[in-house]
Amino acid sequence: MSADVGKPGAMRQQIVLSGVGGQGILFLSRLLAEAAIACGFPVLTSETHGMAQRGGVVVSHLKVGRFDSPLVRTGRADLLIVLKEENIALHREFLADGGTLVVNAPVPTDAGPRVRLHAIDADALALSTGSPLAVNLVLLGFALARVGGGPSGGLFCTAGEIREALTRRQGAGGARLAAAVSALDLGIAHGT
């Protein structure tokens, strides 16, 4: 991340999201991309579709700021969000030196040196609320609480901006929105 975050022109952040089909990786990357656009940043994403979505490994790339290529190179990601712990072995190498790894895991795992690691059992939390499909938002909320959002944080946008993006996606006032926001807030509460 560049030192002079806060100036939209200087924002350059690279994020990789990793999981398996059905965990809502696509939803999460699109939500973050829409939040970035609402903040006034250019955005490029790259998604996995097709065969790989059938429960196999799914990875999304998100680049916020001025970029041309939709792909994050290995050793370049500021943030790696892993929804399936076993994928750390596959996608750990995307992280830059000193980058942040946020993982859905019951106990903190060994992610190697020069990684800032934050772990939470998002599966258990999502199941406890009766909505196993909300695991992606629980983990995002947790990540936001841990790395901080907005101009001075580790993520380009704030929790409030994510909530606004969710509202634009799901329409204000519906039950789906309420469930989504509460999953996000649950993650935030556990990360604070």
Partner: peptide
Amino acid sequence: DRAPAVQGGGRRPTLC
């Protein structure tokens, strides 16, 4: 010397 991330590997796709 940085190589691309390994393609493939990990959990294989299965029927739903």
